[in-house]
């Protein structure tokens, strides 16, 4: 870099129903909160299910589809690719099932009947969704697209691009716990440190240390099953629903933290890994060298355990 010394700048705000926080190192405050909020509004206008009239809401209301903007195209293209890669475990059309199980935007705390699930399944599946030139099309009018699971990852990538356009090369962008990072802190020259939140267990874990990873560049995201669940008798119904069967995933995974070259990729795969279960996830990760992951799961005896890919282990900083 050379030239003028770098100073840290911090931007914080609310977006997409959560908070964001940006730290960047630059000679001057070349990116402002107004720049960031403008960019966030543009994304909401395209991808937000909460914004009436957004492009995604228009798509869901339309019988066949519409002309997409660059945001929608990029995110759907990634969603379709990950849908293929994960054999349908990640599916951006699963929302009607999630809603039926009471985990959607409007809560119904009931268990849907098998007949209801079968009926919903006819309008679920990314094979009914496609990009044709500039258009996003669907083959079933009731198909409902929901990109909330990956929009935050995408958003931190877009905000990183915004910083990069201003020649910023040292930054950390976080929104809703999804992170995109590059470079080092100044003046220390250290890599950015990223804490991993994990579910509370019954262990008497006094608040002393946390799991921390250090990453030179990339996206870090986490998907978890530990905050949102319904209790039906002894059975916990988690909020992640298998798009193929229509029923909640029942496996041992509690959370998956993924490191990938960008946050959109990480965000798409953290969901899919949660659906795979531990053994399948580990096999999948061995075949995908660009993904590193840290998985927390429950053993049959109820205790919590964790495992990480070798690449992830290298990123973890063991504290004294």
């Amino acid at each position: 870099m050379g030239g003028a010394p770098l100073c840290p700048y911090q931007l914080r705000g609310y977006a997409q129903g959560t908070t964001y926080s940006i730290t960047y190192y630059a000679p001057d405050s070349v990116v402002t909160k107004a720049d960031v909020d403008r960019q966030l509004a543009e994304i909401d206008h395209s991808l937000s299910l909460y914004e009436p009239g957004s492009l995604i809401n228009q798509f869901n209301a339309s019988p066949k589809g519409l002309v997409a903007d660059p945001h929608l195209k990029r995110v759907v293209a990634k969603a379709l690719r990950v849908y293929q890669e994960t054999d349908g475990l990640f599916d951006a059309t699963v929302e009607p099932l999630v809603a039926a199980w009471g985990f959607g935007m409007s809560r119904a705390a009931t268990t849907p009947t098998p007949a209801a699930i079968q009926a919903i399944l006819t309008s679920v599946g990314s094979d009914k969704l496609g990009l044709r030139g500039d258009s996003l099309v669907k083959t079933v009018p009731a198909l409902h697209l929901d990109l909330n699971g990956i929009a935050q990852g995408y958003t931190v990538d877009v905000l990183a691009t915004l910083l990069e356009r201003k020649r910023i090369r040292n930054y950390l962008v976080e929104l809703g716990g999804e992170i995109r990072v590059r470079g080092r802190k100044w003046p220390s020259g250290e890599l950015m440190r990223i804490g991993i939140e994990r579910p509370d267990t019954n262990a008497l874990n006094a608040p002393v240390m946390q799991q921390v990873l250090r990453l030179a560049a990339g996206g870090v995201t986490t998907s978890g099953n530990y905050r949102q669940f319904h209790q039906t008798g002894t059975r916990r119904n988690a909020h992640l629903i298998n798009p193929k069967t229509g029923y909640p995933f029942q496996n041992e995974l509690i959370s998956a933290t993924v490191v990938a070259p960008d946050a959109l990729t990480a965000d798409a795969y953290d969901n899919a890994l949660m659906g795979m279960g531990l053994a399948h996830a580990l096999v999948f990760l061995r075949q995908h060298a660009d993904l590193q992951a840290y998985l927390i799961y429950q053993r049959p005896d109820g205790t919590t355990a964790e495992t990480a890919t070798p690449g992830f282990q290298q990123l973890l900083q063991i504290q004294p």
């Binding site: 939140e197 509370d200 874990n205 946390q210 799991q211 905050r227 205790t303 355990a305 495992t307």
Partner: peptide, 22 residues
């Protein structure tokens, strides 16, 4: 794959990771 030891894990877990949920 590396399994982190439970004891290590407790040492490293903390406020952030503890969360404040039930």
């Amino acid at each position: 794959m590396t399994n982190l030891e439970r004891r290590d894990f407790i040492k490293k877990t903390g406020l952030l990771s503890g969360g404040l949920l039930l």
